[in-house]
Amino acid sequence: MTDESFDDMTDESFDLRLRLLDRQVVDPDGAMICKVDDVELAPADGGGYVVTALLAGPLALGPRLPGRLGRWTVALARRWSDDPEPSPRRIPFERVTELGSAVVLDRSRDQLGIAGLEDWVRTHVIDRIPGSRHASE
């Protein structure tokens, strides 16, 4: 059971922890985007819940970490964010095309606009070092 198209999944109920949470999220080319740090649920008609979005980043993972560590993660992430009302990075579930061993999206990372730390690090540190744009030789 490694590849299943998204359409087959919409009608079944499945175990979030086993099939979705903490999975690697990749773009159509296989480039790594993030982990499914948490999910956003909404009540479904006819009982139960449906997944409406994937959540990523410290604001999503923090609450799932135990005790003080979790609280500190969330507090730090809030401090770091420019937003007055910070919320976790959100990928609408419609972006998901495949739920296999990784969660495959239909857009690349840049198109999603959710990279925060990666962009900052790239701009302020990595791009300043010569050779960052070249593949290794």
């Binding site: 999220v25 480039a31 790594m32 982990k35 990666e118 540190v125 990595i126 050779g131 960052s132």
Partner: peptide, 21 residues
Amino acid sequence: QYFGWQWGKFVRPRDAARFHV
């Protein structure tokens, strides 16, 4: 790998910025 960041030497350094940092 724990946080799901792009990693590895098989991509350009700028595409795996946090990994290299």
